[in-house]
Design a protein around this nucleic acid. Sequence first.
RNA 1: GUCCCCAUCGUCCAACGGCCAGGACACCAGCCUUUCGAGCUGACAAUGAGGGUUCGAUUCCCUCUGGGGACACCA
Length: 433
Amino acid sequence: MSVRVRFAPSPTGKLHVGSARTALFNWLFAKHHRGAFVLRIEDTDQKRSNPAFLQDIDASLAFLGIVADEGPIFQSQRAALYREHAERLLQAGQVVEREGAVVFPVAPQTVTFADLLHGDITVDTSLFESLVLMKSDGTPTYNFACVVDDALMRISHVIRGDDHIANTPKQVLLYRALGFPLPVFAHIPLIVGVDRARLSKRFGATSVDEYRQVGYLPEAFVNYLVLLGWSPGGNRELIAGQELIEAFDLAKVRKAAAQFDQRKLDWLNSQYLKRTPLPRLAALLAERLVAKGWLPADYDRTWLSRIAALLQDRLRVLEEIEEEHAFFFREPPDYEGEAVEKYLRGDGVAERLLELRERLSRLAAFDTPQIEAATRALVAERQLASKELIHPVRVAVTGREVSPPLFETMAILGKAKVLSRLEHAATALARRS
RNA sequence: GUCCCCAUCGUCCAACGGCCAGGACACCAGCCUUUCGAGCUGACAAUGAGGGUUCGAUUCCCUCUGGGGACACCA
């Protein structure tokens, strides 16, 4: 039997991280078994469905590297199919019409189904006396459309969140009534937040798109998601691409809900960032900066590569290029009030900045070794501690108390900007008005 | 409330029923250092409780406790 799985989101919101992991597990399972991954859009609820979310689902899946082998198939375009099968059940006397809806009466019984992760799950159907199959507005309910579609699409494995466990016995009943063979079910645990309840906006970002925007790399995000409930074994953590597909084993997914840990995701992302080839990192950063208008479309690639190299093992997420390193791109940089107060207003600071400026202006080559030599020479001659000069210069040049290594930073900024900032700091900022 | 699912460090994962329960993140300390970070060292830290089964239980069974999920003409 060939493996066929489906991911069936409803376009009623941005693609949720939890849904993304369900999609990912389905996709990995399909790819591992050289099967097919089908995308189905469950948009039978016209009131809540919104085309804008469709685009988000597409973009988010693309970001994750998930490509559907079939679909998207829209339930809203399959109305006739559901009606046809409802009619069939009506003819067979298995359902009744009640108040304009097609209802499936459920005799009290016990339903047992096999789950790939949980083993046999048994449920007493007296919990639900009847199931609405077709609503009075003529559209199918979730459980009915889901069964008809999964059966007609010949889905072999239904892999979904374990919040669907309660739906499964209802669907099993419908498979039987319709005479369809049962797929294999696998209910994977949910992702929860720090409150142990399902991930909600109260505790941060919940949509894939938000994580993409903050600047997580797809491989890192996928790697993190897959580690939530599964591991490749051997205490290994970093895994991606084909290796991940080959190693993935649905049966080894843990059954307990996993808590989403932003910090570990950050760490993983930083690991991937360190391993990203410089040209790609530079391109990713440039994309953000150009979009923000901080960099022209025809930016200097060599220059940006130097910045990328300098920041490569400092960034946790791409967003930090704008959040913490704007001084590379803004003229003048933003000066943090606290930093100015702390380092630029001391006795003799302005004079030292101007003296360094003078020496730097005479440098033949404005490169890191020469900048460092000039700075250290001044420190030595004035019998200062290094930090007595370096800290003020850092604030003068970057506007901040913390920055990447200062001499490299100055070299990359270039002589003109450094001299101008030193002067500005010494003449305007260092003196209280 | 009823039904279902789940239970190893704070968190995420390991551990054919059998060596001192292992790794990672976070946290803490040290080294390095122009700040921060990165990196390197090290420390701290768990089998929810009680019963069984067994020569031996993290692992198998039962009860309890705790947590979560589901109880729509929403998906």
